[in-house]
């Protein structure tokens, strides 16, 4: 079993797929519902405090906005723990969504700088692309199992 960081980290679908192929998903799986009634897309389920942005200083300097540092306080430890990663770019809101573009840039950079297997894909826009998309993820996850065996 490999610890796989998923991006968008809120994606329930990605989280399920990683789990289904026998690995541990590292993310903050959250159902992006049809109606958005929370402050943001990825409103944290836990109560964050002003101490969280301070903990985020480990990943981003003090001149970086507090929202980025607060998000990094959640994401940073998961990235450090990860042994593989799946990154889906340009995903639809409903697939999984992280609210801050600056944090997303930093998260992806930190993943790319880790010496781990990474699968980067663009979100599919047609049925044909969708089939290929799922196939690529399946192949990547299966490969991780073989590598780990």
């Amino acid at each position: 079993m490999v610890k796989v960081f998923i991006y968008p980290s809120t994606s329930l679908i990605l989280s399920d797929m990683v789990d289904r192929w026998g690995h541990e998903p590292l993310g903050a799986a959250l159902q992006i519902r049809e109606r958005i009634q929370t402050p943001g897309f990825d409103s944290p389920p836990l109560q964050m405090t002003p101490d969280d942005p301070k903990r985020g200083l480990r990943y981003a300097a003090v001149e970086v906005p507090s929202g980025v540092r607060g998000r990094m306080a959640l994401m940073g430890p998961l990235i450090e723990e990860s042994e593989a990663a799946i990154v889906i770019n340009d995903a639809d809101f409903s697939f999984g969504c992280m609210g801050c573009a600056r944090t997303n840039e930093l998260v992806k950079l930190l993943i790319r700088h880790r010496d781990i297997p990474i699968l980067e894909l663009t979100y599919p826009r047609s049925e044909e692309e969708g089939v290929a998309f799922v196939g690529a993820i399946k192949q990547f996850l299966t490969g991780l199992s073989e590598g780990a065996a």
Binding site: P39, G40, S43, P50, D51, P65, G70, G99, C100
Partner: peptide, 14 residues
């Protein structure tokens, strides 16, 4: 009505 980006992750929504 609150229109915002970041207050929860900054710990200031409260």
């Amino acid at each position: 009505a609150q229109l915002s980006c970041g207050p929860e992750h900054s710990g200031v929504q409260g």
